[in-house]
Computed example of a mutant assay.
Amino acid sequence: MIRMIVKDLRINPLRTGLTALSMFIGIVALIAGVLVGTLGRDYLEAVNARLSGRTPTYSAIIDVTSVAGMQTTMTLQERLAHFEPGSASAQYHLNDLAIWASSGDGGLEIRHVAVTVTDAERTRVMPAPIIEGAWLTAADKPATLETVVNENARQYVHDGTITLARTGNPQQVPARVNGVIVDGADEPVIYVNAAALQRYWPQAWTPDGLTILVHPDAGVDDRHAKTALDDLLADVGAGSVSSWNRSDNADEYEQVIDFLQLGVIVTAMLLLAVSAIGMINIGLAGIEQRSHELLIRRALGATRASIAAQVIGSSVLLSLIIALAAVLISASLVWMVPWMMPADSPLEPPAYPYTAAMIAAGASVATSLIGSLAPAIKAIRLQPALALR
């Protein structure tokens, strides 16, 4: 029977090719739909994480009591680096910190660009791909006065440094630029190492406030994270939490993600339905063309079961071959995606959707089985007496 089924596939190459193409499109479309939906979700989450923190991120505004002290700041940053309920990063507000940059007439002037005084833990809460150099040095490691800039702030970098200044103060201090990141911000942003700033330019260390960003680990309740932060601040003597709010803006894109996933599912179902309809049409047309051959087999003693097995078996075998080919080709394409992604892409290289591939392969076999039932029923209803006409 297997030999007959294989031979059956070779009788009409055009019919077999059209059926194979229909199956291939359905399988690849389902895999691609799931992959696109997954990438769309990952993209929205990655962009949001750059701008407002990983999901979930909480913003804790601190009532500052003694954060101006060097020892307090160093201890606080070291403790935040080992924050057990999750990841935590401090952001100090120094309103008078600015930079010296070229003016329109060729001279130098103070520019009030966004200057964020933070620590090495920030990228664990708000990830930002590093496209050049490295991120800020950890507080417990030696470092010179250092900064990191985003792409829009490259214009202020000269000879690998940026000149920091204070509003209304003629003093200028060069700071080394560690690297360049993609943080998703549309305006220039300069990130300054808080520990290094306090150590090497203490005159500029006049914080007006402190915000701590907290990203709890999976399964950690936000109330537990807040309690842990309160205990940490009390131990360090750096004030207390006066405001605790979620700041990652996840609610704004969750509806978009749900709609995207629903659209992907509906599209995949429609593609499979179109594939099944195409197979039924091709199968019925094939029975019309092969009716004389099937009638002769019936007249020579072939049973209705063998005729049905021949018709259904050829479709199922073809679907298995096409499913394997579609999975291999789609896996090769997914493997090539990381090589085509730009360095500043917010997405991680996508993993191959094995579950979707198995579902697509199973759906292909089920579709071929369903799609071959109508042709098989038509074939077994042929009357052997017609072969004598």
Rank of each mutant, 00 (worst) to 15 (best):
P202Y: 11
A228P: 07
A194P: 15
T206A: 09
L213N: 01
L210W: 03
W201C: 05
V182L: 07
I190A: 01
D221W: 03
L197R: 10
P188K: 04
L210G: 08
L210C: 07
Q203C: 07
A228I: 04
G184C: 10
V214H: 02
T227L: 14
D231H: 13
D186I: 01
L210M: 08
L229G: 13
L197T: 14
T206H: 11
I190S: 01
V192N: 09
L197N: 13
P216D: 10
D208K: 00
A204C: 09
L232D: 12
Y200V: 05
E187V: 14
V180A: 05
Y200P: 05
G209P: 03
D208V: 00
A218V: 06
Y191N: 02
N193S: 15
D186R: 08
A218R: 10
L197A: 09
R199G: 12
D231G: 07
V214F: 00
D183I: 02
H215Q: 11
V214A: 05
A195H: 11
A225W: 01
V214P: 03
I212H: 01
L229Y: 10
W205N: 12
P207H: 08
R199H: 13
A195S: 15
V180L: 03
D230K: 04
K226S: 08
I212Y: 00
W205C: 13
W205M: 15
T227F: 11
G184T: 01
W201D: 14
A218W: 06
R199Y: 09
V180G: 09
Y200C: 02
K226M: 12
L229E: 12
A228K: 07
V192Y: 02
Q203T: 15
A204G: 12
D183C: 03
A185C: 00
A195E: 10
Y200M: 09
E187W: 04
V180P: 06
W205A: 13
P202G: 13
R199I: 02
L229K: 07
E187N: 08
V189W: 07
H215W: 06
K226I: 02
H224C: 04
R223V: 07
D186N: 05
A194Q: 10
G219N: 04
H224V: 15
D217L: 05
